[in-house]
Nucleic acid binder design. Structure first.
Length: 295
DNA sequence: GATCCGTGGGC
DNA sequence: TGCCCAAGGAT
């Protein structure tokens, strides 16, 4: 795409975002880099509406990395509640410990230092660098990938992710100015989340409809490689793990294997799920039974 | 690169 | 109603 067209898309999205941005609490001017980092952990594969109340409670209770690091992982897992993928709670706690140990309790601004934190990958590292510190990095999430696929590549869906390719595509659109780049990163995500959605895109409300290659091509159906479909949840190990974790969060004492048996009829699958939780550090087994990790 | 990992919202 | 998908990361 010619640079001029890229600039048109960027400028249009930035202008739109100034009005259309949802007032999400972690976008407030006075939030700390830690608060931004917490939001990004919680938002991994989890919708905004479910995150907001958990984030507010979390920041109130643990306003700094040091505050979280001072408590056992079990408290992080309990506060995570039912956000899903409880490994993220464990990783966020570990990241807080790493921030205390390696960075004096201050969230690092450096991209490589962020990437080195537990649970921080290509997306989260750049999101924190860009949104918390104002650095000019391309930030690519699932929303951004869909917007680029449609507006730039003229395809209905983005196809399988590739970090290098996706970051390159976003970098080619990124405004040179730091402030503009930050807004554009947020704007692309916002458009994908609220207008250029996966299911029923609201093209009539789209600020870049006039520049959209997919629209210009007549909305051709996607015929490229599909991303792998999620495995069925009902009856899966993930379902069993979720049931066990709910039990362990609620029980403030060790839970015996015999008690867990009430959660799932298939004993072999239950054992497999519990073993997986132990291997992941989400559950600990001792002579008394199973419980959340205390250290 | 393919799989696994929770929980629930929206259509 | 069941299915798709969600501000990803680790292995």
């Amino acid at each position: 795409m010619p640079r001029a067209d890229a600039q048109t898309i960027a400028a249009s999205l930035v202008a739109w975002f100034a009005d259309a941005a949802r007032p999400l609490p972690w976008r407030a001017a006075d939030v700390s880099p830690w608060a931004v980092l917490v939001s990004e952990f919680m938002l991994q594969q989890t919708q905004v509406a479910r995150v907001v109340p958990r984030w507010e409670a979390w920041i109130r209770r643990w306003p700094t990395p040091s505050a979280l690091a001072a408590e056992p992982p079990s408290e992080a897992v309990r506060a995570w509640d039912r956000l899903g993928y409880p490994r993220r709670a464990l990783w966020l706690h570990r990241a807080a410990v790493e921030i205390v140990e390696r960075h004096g309790g201050e969230v690092p601004a450096d991209l490589d230092a962020l990437l080195a934190l537990q649970g921080v990958g290509p997306y989260t590292a750049r999101a924190v660098a860009a949104f918390a510190f104002g650095a000019r990095h391309p930030v690519v999430d699932t929303n951004t990938r869909r917007v680029i696929a449609r507006a730039v590549a003229g395809q209905g869906e983005p196809g399988p992710p590739s970090t290098a390719r996706d970051l390159g595509a976003m970098a080619a659109l990124l405004p040179h100015d730091d402030v503009e780049a930050r807004a554009f990163n947020a704007a692309a995500m916002e458009l994908g989340a609220t207008v250029c959605t996966a299911r029923t895109p609201q093209c009539d409300d789209c600020p870049i409809a006039g520049a959209c290659a997919w629209r210009a091509a007549g909305y051709p159906p996607y015929d490229g490689a599909r991303k792998a479909t999620q495995a069925r949840f009902e009856g899966s190990d993930r379902q069993v793990r979720g049931l066990v974790m709910r039990e362990l969060r609620g029980a403030h004492r060790p839970v015996m294997r015999a008690e867990l048996a009430a959660l799932w009829a298939d004993a072999a699958q239950l054992d497999r799920a519990v073993a997986g939780l132990v291997a992941d550090g989400l559950a600990v087994s001792d002579g008394e039974g199973f419980h959340l990790p205390e250290a």
